[in-house]
Design a binder for these strands. Structure first.
Length: 141
DNA sequence: GCCAACGTTGGC
DNA sequence: GCCAACGTTGGC
């Protein structure tokens, strides 16, 4: 299957990009939403994901890759349906891509991130992915 | 099985 | 701090 792209949100207060970089690897735990869970379960090793800082920053700050496919969330109650994936940072974006910039761009205004603002793990299409990376090359965009 | 009440998330 | 979106819960 072709590589898939994702966007994963975290409040920097709880778990920031810098923390993931410092750790070298991270388990994406704590997802308690079924739509988000289905996305986690659809992830394949080698897929790439944007790290988005919600609430504080409200911007995409880095790229990570999926290094281990979904398995039961050890922080959830036994028997609960929740899962996690293991991720590793790939690189920081040269310039963060803000929510405002995404909303203002007609090519990106239809993203999961915009349409379903509370969804913490969303899909990104290859076109959206390319476009966001291009935006991240330039400041203020 | 429907729907109102309530809680949580996240943008502003 | 407020509000909209949306998920969950509980009464019926």
């Amino acid at each position: 299957m072709a590589k898939q792209y994702w966007l994963m949100k975290s409040e920097p207060d709880a778990y920031a990009w810098e923390q993931l970089v410092a750790d070298g690897t991270g388990m994406w735990d704590g997802v308690r939403n079924h739509t988000a869970k289905l996305n986690l379960m659809a992830m394949k090793k080698g897929d790439e994901a944007l790290f988005y800082h919600s609430n504080i920053g409200k911007e995409c700050v880095g790229i990570m890759k999926i290094v281990e496919e979904s398995f039961p969330d050890p922080t959830a109650e036994k028997g609960a349906p929740w899962v996690v994936v293991r991720v590793e940072p790939v690189r920081a974006l040269k310039h963060p891509v803000t929510l405002a910039a995404i909303k203002a761009d007609p090519k990106l205004a239809d993203m999961d991130l915009i349409r379903q603002s509370r969804l913490s793990v969303g899909r990104v299409t290859p076109d959206e992915w390319k476009h966001i990376l291009k935006k991240s090359e330039k400041p203020a965009g």
